[in-house]
Every structure is written in C-alpha cells, then in structure tokens.
C-alpha cells in the first residue's frame, strides 16, 4: 500500500489535533467531562449550605431566587432541591420564602467550609498554583474529602487558623474565630495599618490597587478618609484611592509599640555593596518559601548585604551570616528591609 506523503502528513496532523482536543489541560474534553461529572446533586446541595452559612454570618437573608444563580439551575429545580433539603432536616423555610440553616445544616455547612478553607491554605502553602486557582480547586476538593482526610490535612498543615485570604478556618467543634484584618476603609485617620491581603476578585478595582504599588506586607498610615477618597501615606509615598477600591484592601491595625519607621522598601531594591536589616516578610511569602528563607537564616533582624549581581541583573547574591545566597527577584520582593550603614 502506498500513500502520498501529503496525505500521511494530514493524517498525522489530524491525530495530533484530536489528541490535543482530548487531553488539553483544563479545556480538553476529558477535563470538561470530569467537570460535568462533578456537578451532582450532592455538590449542589453542599453549595447551597455554604452559601447560606456565609449569608447568615453577614446577617443577610436568602431566598430561593438568590440561590438560582449560585447553583446554576432554574427556579423550579432549585425549589425542588430546597424542599428535599428541608425534608432532610438541613434547612428551614418560612412563609416569606426566607431560608435558614437548622443546627444539623449548620454543622454540615461548617464541615464543608472547613474543608474548603483548609484546602485553600494547603494549595497556597504547599503548591505552586497561583492565587486565583486556590479557590477553584478547593471548590472541587471540598466535596470529595472525607472528614478523616480533612483532619489529616489540618494536622499536616499544623492546624492553621486562617485561610490564605485571612478568613478564619472553623475548628472541628465549629468555632469560627475573628477575621484577620478588616477593609482598609474601616480605620480612623492617624491609625497605622499593615496590609494583609488584597482582594483580586474584581479586576478593575484590583488593577487600581496594583497601579498604586500596594502589596501585602506594606505598612501605611491613614491620612484622610472621606466619602470621596481615602489617602494613605508611607515613608516617602502617598496613595489616594476611592473608598470602593480601598475596601478591597484588607488590613490589620499595627500596635503602637511596633511602629518604627514606615519603611516599605524590599530586598530587591538593594544595590551592590549596600547593607540592610530584614524587618519582616510579606504575608504572601508563605509555606515552603518562608520555611526555606528561615532555613537559610534569613529572618527579621538579619543583616544582609548585596555581594553580587547576576549577569542579567537577576538573581542577586546576598551575604547572610557570612554565606553568599542567591535569591530571585520574586522572592526578594517579599522581604521588607530597613537600610543600615556600613559593614555588618
């Protein structure tokens, strides 16, 4: 049998394209099929429980209409799901159509929320996935993790208190602690805050914060708050943001005794031969990164000096405790410093 090479070429290319369509990560048919498979009635029910739990924490009322979008079903199907949940004793519906959790429903919801936040924490600390993927991945994993697995995960992570967004992780007994930080709009003029988290969910707001160069770990003084604008200041910089935008910045107040100089300089800005003292790590420097830095002896209080610039400017080598250690810009951006004079 003889085939023209052009035909063979076309067949080969065709097979490659087919394989690509099948196996392409996240968009291929196989992963789409897996997504579809995940959308069972139990997952939908668990999503409803989670939504109710969050809404009740914010003292918001929920009706069947609110839930339609959330579970991606029409009103009639949603109502049918809710009725089934009511007969299972998970929720209560009153005459106005307001839905609330029963005790049983509440503890079920807490279990799911705990699994979700623990998974987010795990993905943030122990994997290389980016921030926007933690939530999506945890959203799937929470439904397939047994309570025993959840507890094993918590033990492995050292029973963390907060998820990577600073939201408290409910304990096994269902205790929910205070959140780590509040919106930057909730502080008074003159207070000093440290940014713990920047909400990325609304792109146009996030890009404004990004343009101002505000990142987790920065210390800022509130200079002015009004309905029109909020003014922040650091040592040598001023940022002005609209309140809607500023509300996406989550921050904690800084105790008065911890306020030294509001230095927001990072290790990456240090030039050859210059010395500095490490003052803190950004909260986004977490998990394996943070542990590695500490293993290398880079901690708050440590003296560092730039000894060597890479041929392309990155990485840079730093002299830490008599040892030269090269770090990339991504990591040295997360280490806040205070310049010191002369040799260490």
């Amino acid at each position: 049998m003889t085939l023209h090479p052009g035909v063979l070429l076309a067949i080969g290319a065709g097979i490659l394209v087919c394989l690509g369509l099948l196996f392409w990560p996240r968009r291929g048919l196989i992963s789409l099929w897996k997504d579809l498979h995940l959308n069972t009635s139990r997952t939908r029910m668990e999503h409803v429980l989670k939504h109710l739990f969050n809404a009740e924490n914010l003292h918001r009322k929920t009706t069947a209409k609110n839930l339609c979008i959330r579970v991606g079903m029409g009103l009639r199907k949603t109502q049918a799901l809710l009725n089934r949940m009511e007969s299972n004793g998970l929720i209560k519906q009153d005459d106005q159509g307001n839905i609330s959790l029963t005790d049983e429903g509440n503890s079920y919801a807490i279990r799911i929320v705990r699994a979700h936040r623990l998974w987010e924490r795990y993905l943030a600390d122990e994997t290389g996935l980016s921030g926007d993927e933690w939530h999506q991945k945890a959203e799937r994993l929470e439904h397939t993790t047994s309570p025993e697995q959840v507890e094993a995960l918590a033990a492995q992570l050292g029973n963390p208190l907060y998820d990577p967004h600073g939201t408290p992780i409910p304990t096994v007994d269902g205790v929910v602690g205070p959140p780590q930080g509040q919106p930057a709009t909730s502080f008074a003029v003159g207070e000093v805050i440290v940014v713990t988290h920047v909400d990325k969910e609304q792109d146009h707001l996030y890009s404004q914060i990004q343009a101002e160069g505000i990142v987790p770990g920065m210390q800022l003084r509130i200079l002015e708050t009004s309905a029109q604008r909020i003014r922040f200041g650091s040592q040598d910089n001023e940022h002005v943001l609209a309140p809607v935008v500023a509300a996406r910045i989550i921050a904690m107040p800084l105790p008065a005794e911890q306020i030294e100089v509001l230095s927001n300089e990072t290790l990456s800005s240090l030039q050859q031969g210059e010395t500095a003292r490490v003052v803190r790590f950004a909260p986004t420097c977490r998990g394996i990164e943070r542990r590695r830095l500490m293993d290398l002896g880079i901690l708050p209080g440590t003296q560092v000096q730039v000894t060597l610039n890479g041929p392309f400017g990155d990485p840079k080598a730093f002299l830490v405790r008599q040892t030269a250690i090269a770090l990339r810009k991504e990591l040295s951006n997360l280490i806040f410093i205070e310049r010191t004079e002369g040799a260490s």
């Binding site: 290389g128 998990g287 290398l296 990485p315």
Partner: peptide
C-alpha cells in the same frame, strides 16, 4: 504547574 517551586542558591 501545581508543583511547589522555590529558588535559592548558595555560592
């Protein structure tokens, strides 16, 4: 993509 990644190099 999901594997943890961290860079440091001793000289």
């Amino acid at each position: 993509r999901g594997e943890a990644s961290i860079y440091s190099l001793e000289l």
